[in-house]
Design a protein around this nucleic acid. Structure first.
Lengths: 312, 312
DNA sequence: GTAATTTTATAGTCTAAATCAATTAAAATG
DNA sequence: CATTTTAATTGATTTAGACTATAAAATTAC
């Protein structure tokens, strides 16, 4: 049994197809066929059920592939150890970011980061929290930036910053004349919420929930972007809540519509999250430092109340 | 990087010697030399410092070998998964047993066990608790039978039975005329204790400690075997405590010297312990079942008070 | 301080294993 | 039923792993 064979098995399990898996492994398809056969012969079990199309794992196969994932992960940590020893910070790094963080945070730190760590090949994807969790678990992402705490078993979190919510009150809204908003003022019925893998949205719902127990989701409107949200709000669909960093680049003429909360401000916790195996930890540390440094100048709030992104 | 190379590195790290490691791996010494060189070339680090005799690990080398242990352990679990799937219970299994359990328990279950599981090649070693803990941690033992709880990080425990202590009171001892012994009767000064990787001995000391805070170890005598202990006791060196199973095969003429404790009897907890990775769990389960079944007839006590084997 | 011994590294050879290109076989699709 | 997709097979080629023999280096013995 070799690590290579296990990697092949993982690729086939993932793509459910020898040919595609072979491409991903940069070998020919017969190579995969023979290597998997050798593995199956050595263990004397059938791992893949070729009877079904697309190919499926047998029951043992599923367990073996799960364990193979562990072995391959642990094996990759050897290179990690060496990199750490050499102080080398580089290689491919796949980072996921949730939609409501992506457009504000990324421009702030990316330039600095690639300058500070030119050997790191960052591959950034905009993903929902849900997608992020599965992709960190299955090894397709090295880390991600999301609202926390998530309380997910296989995933560790390291807080980057706390981002207060700022209310956007359209003209003619009942709260228009208040200078600062109280949490008690929020009514889920006249609030526009952003669908964001449920995470930002659930955070806001939790905020209102403390004062309203019954929520009828059918009245809520969900939009795909902060910009749409503001436009809808301006057309009289209700007020909305914006993460603080988004308010920094809002058009100046709309600024009068922004209302800060009375302290402690409701806020979301934004963290870099990664698999508990702590693979590529040097790069995660580098990202952490890089982002923390940038954000320190932008967010000065200290007295905040964290809103959980989890439903209920 | 191959699993084989990692195994070679582990062997060399253990024996600090290429030649001896080669023998253990059933290959020639040049094979090890070249494979380790290939591994070092690929990772571009030096793992072994050949400058020193005996050979030493470099700092990175130590980390790499530690990780290699993880990888090899995880890799061996693949075969485990397959065995479990097939219901196969077999292969080599290295079991450690502490001295005060070995002579009584082993004859009781061994015959039955090898009959029930003929494919398991049991390798049994008599070891102290301390030796057992290091050998389970470094993978030289698959499991062991010892007094518990041990509260060791990497090790899981599964209780096999509770074994009460029985007092052995020599003729002319101050307690000779009591029918049953109370814990309060015990005096650490006239007690003979068996050195047993400190575990049985510490258990008894704990027992007395509840009534005496100061112990002067210089007065205590330690012997290597239960038989010697009884003889010394008979020569007026003091009373002693025997684990219940030992009293079953004591010579009949000495039986009058045995005194049971008033309930709840002080007892030791005897468990099968194993690495937290739960490798070869089917065999551990088989041993557990086998021993539990046998012991059920022999020990009928229920109202017991557990004495911890840990110092202090 | 040199000889003997132990231990690791190197060289050259052999064998087995891994991979590839080309082809066949089998299944799914249209 | 023909076409397409996909896995298995074949045979050649390259690579990797292991061996024997030997050299080099270090340690120990005398």
């Amino acid at each position: 049994m070799t690590i290579t064979q296990l990697k092949y098995a993982l690729a086939i399990a993932e793509h459910q197809n020898f040919t595609k898996a072979a491409e991903k492994c940069f070998v020919t398809q017969p190579t995969l066929s023979t290597q998997i056969q050798k593995l199956e012969d050595e263990l004397d079990v059938i791992i893949f059920d070729r009877g079904k199309k697309p190919i499926e794992l047998t029951d043992v196969g599923r367990k073996i592939v799960f364990q193979a994932r562990n072995i391959v992960n642990e094996a990759e940590r050897i290179q990690d150890i060496v990199d750490q020893q050499k102080g080398f910070i580089g290689g491919e790094f796949r980072l996921g970011i949730i939609p409501t963080v992506m457009p504000t945070l990324l421009p702030m730190f990316l330039k600095n980061f690639i300058k500070a760590y030119p050997k790191v090949k960052l591959k950034i994807e905009e993903l929902t929290t849900e997608e992020i969790l599965t992709r960190i678990s299955d090894g397709h992402l090295d880390a991600a930036i999301a609202a926390t705490p998530l309380e997910s078993d296989n995933i560790k979190e390291r807080v980057l910053y706390y981002e207060p919510f700022v209310a956007y009150i359209p003209d003619n809204h009942r709260l228009k004349d208040k200078k600062t908003i109280e949490i008690e003022d929020l009514e889920i019925e006249d609030m526009l919420l952003l669908e964001d893998g449920h995470c930002f949205r659930d955070g806001v719902i939790n905020l209102c929930k403390t004062f309203k127990d019954q929520i009828d989701d059918s009245f809520q409107l969900e939009s795909g972007s902060i910009e749409t949200l503001i436009k809808l709000s301006n057309e009289g669909m209700g007020m909305t809540l914006l993460p603080y960093l988004h308010t920094l680049d809002i058009k100046e003429k709309l600024n009068p519509n922004l209302r800060h909360f009375a302290e402690p401000s409701p806020a979301r916790e934004v963290s870099i999250i990664f698999h508990k195996s702590e693979l590529k930890m040097q790069i995660i540390d580098a990202l952490h430092n890089s982002i923390s440094g940038i954000i320190r100048g932008a967010i000065a709030f200290s007295n905040v109340e964290i809103i959980s992104p989890l439903p209920k």
